[in-house]
Structure formats: C-alpha cells, structure tokens
Amino acid sequence: MISLVRAELRKYVTTRLSWSMPLAMAVLGGLFAALQGLFLAVIGEFPAPDGSMIVPAELFGEEVVARLVYTGAVQIGYLLALVLGILSMSGEFRHKTITATLLAAPRRGRLIAAKVVSVAVVVALNAVAFTVGSVAGGAITLAIGDLALFPDPAGLLATFARMILVLVLWGLMGFGLGVLITNQVVALFVGVGVTLLVEPLLGLGLTFVEQLADASKFFPSQASMSALDLFAGVDAGAAQTLGAAQDALSWGWATLVLLGYAAVMATLGWVLTARRDVA
C-alpha cells in the first residue's frame, strides 16, 4: 500500500504538472488575493444599498479584512484543486497508462485508496503554494491600504489551514469525478462547468422555490465559503453585505458536507472501477 502511494506520487513528480501547477496556484492566488485587496484595503470603501459608504476595515475589523483578502482567490484555488484531482485518474485513461498501472496494482480497491492518499498529499502541497502566493499578493495590498498584515496571527493560521483543507476536499471531489467520468475532456468540462455555471444558476433558481431556498447552502461552492469561516465574530446582517450566505452552515458542518461529496463520488468511482473492463 505504501509502495503504491509512492508510485502514485512518483507519477506526479515526473511530469511538468509537478512544477507548473504549484506555480499557477501561487501566481493566481497572488493575483486574485491582490484584486480582493484592491477593493477591500486599497480602495477600502464602497457604497451600501442605502447610499451610505461602507468601510470594511471599520465595520468588520482589520482581522476580518485580512481574512477576506488572503482567501480572496479561493474559488480559483479550489477549481485548480478540482482539476488536479480529475487528472489523477482521467489522465491514466487519456494516455492509456491505466493498463500498466493496473498490471502493477491489480487490486483496484488498493489502487483507488493509494490514489486518494496521493491526491490529498499533492493537493495539500499545491494548496501550500497557493496560500503562500495569496499571502504575498494580499499582503502587498493590505500594506498599501495601510492595514495590519497579520492582525490576528493565530486566527489567520486557522483560516489558512481551513483553506488548505477545502482545497484538498475539492481535489478529492475531482478525483471522484475523474474516476466516474474517464474521458478527461468531459470530466474537466463537467467539473468546471458545474462549479462555475450550473451551481450558481441552480442556486439562483432555488431562491424562487420556497421549500428549497435553503438547499443552496449545501452546494460545494457555498459550503466551501462556509468552511472557511471568514465571518467569525461578525454580525450576520453585516456579513451579508460582503456576500456571505444567509443562514450559512457552520464551518464544521460545511467541511463535513464537502467531505460527503468527496466520499460519495470516490465510492461510486471505486465501485465502478472494480467492475470496469480496461481494454
């Protein structure tokens, strides 16, 4: 089992993805965190619906602004994590390496388990690169906006840890998707499409259905935002002016929801893989 994990990790480090993905993670993390910082720290104010000006740093405190800025790129981050997870399995089918892989690891349950572990490790490492990039990009804008860079170090560390966890869970969801849909292009299309398009549209649609209005908080993107727990200690009404969901899940539950998605998809994939003919 350990040797299978080692083989999976070696697969990752022997392709270009091993440096291009962390690089993309760090750069995009930095850019989008800086963009978030541009609005919340550099410009530092925006009009509320009633016409008065909201100054985030005053309304929520500098620690919340720092949290929001450093996690400002998280949507990009979990999309890339999703892609990493998808590639782990569908890449084997795309390049027909699955035959050699299954000859080396014919017990498919073990192979899936080894891949789950390796995806978690790989995404965690990428998530660290992503966090470093986000902090660099975010810190520049916080400094320009003359706000504290690390107002609540322990709280920020917890936020970073949660962000890394969220990315790992998205990686596992992607892995499940890649096992489920072996065509790499289709899997990427479905994964990114559902996240960027279907989920927001469905969420919007659900707001018109009274009985289901609450359901959207269980969607992966919304649950991810809840899992980051960005608005800890902030009045719920005020948090909504910054885009927090109404009646959002607590971060613990949100994490479990994401874990649930990942587990269901990986299990489905596991069952399918065990029976699938590889020709």
Partner: peptide
C-alpha cells in the same frame, strides 16, 4: 500489451 501507453511528458 499492445495498447499500453506512455504519458507523453514523462520520460
């Protein structure tokens, strides 16, 4: 086996 593939970017 005939259909065994190699990742084009891996040596």
């Amino acid at each position: 086996l005939e259909a065994t593939g190699f990742h084009p970017g891996r040596s």
